[in-house]
């Protein structure tokens, strides 16, 4: 069974044309992989579609605006995937 990270890594690779082997759990989507906010909309769309969820990007953006230093907590891929798992769990609850 594909893990959340594997699915997200494939989405990022396809959407942003980044080799799969460069996408590892400790990488930050923005600062390490060079994804910009427009590309991230495509990624968010693909994640929503793949998992049948609506990741709360607006809420995360508001939280980050209040505390920009926390960016790794949202966009390091291992943490992003943990947040996605939380959204999936909330949907299935």
């Amino acid at each position: 069974m594909t893990t959340t990270f594997e699915a997200v890594a494939e989405i990022i690779s396809e959407t942003s044309d980044i080799p799969l082997e460069e996408i590892t759990p400790e990488k930050n989507a923005f600062t390490d992989l060079g994804i910009d906010s427009l590309d991230f909309l495509d990624i968010a769309f693909a994640i929503d579609k793949h998992f049948g969820i609506k990741i709360p990007l607006e809420q995360w953006t508001e939280e980050l605006n209040e505390n920009p230093a926390q960016v790794d907590e949202y966009f390091v891929l291992s943490k992003l995937c943990a947040r996605i798992d939380e959204v999936i769990a909330a949907k299935d609850a």
């Binding site: 579609k49 609506k54 990741i55 990007l57 607006e58």
Partner: peptide, 9 residues
């Protein structure tokens, strides 16, 4: 096609 959070398609 899709109503996302902060975006739509």
């Amino acid at each position: 096609e899709h109503d996302g959070s902060g975006f739509a398609k």
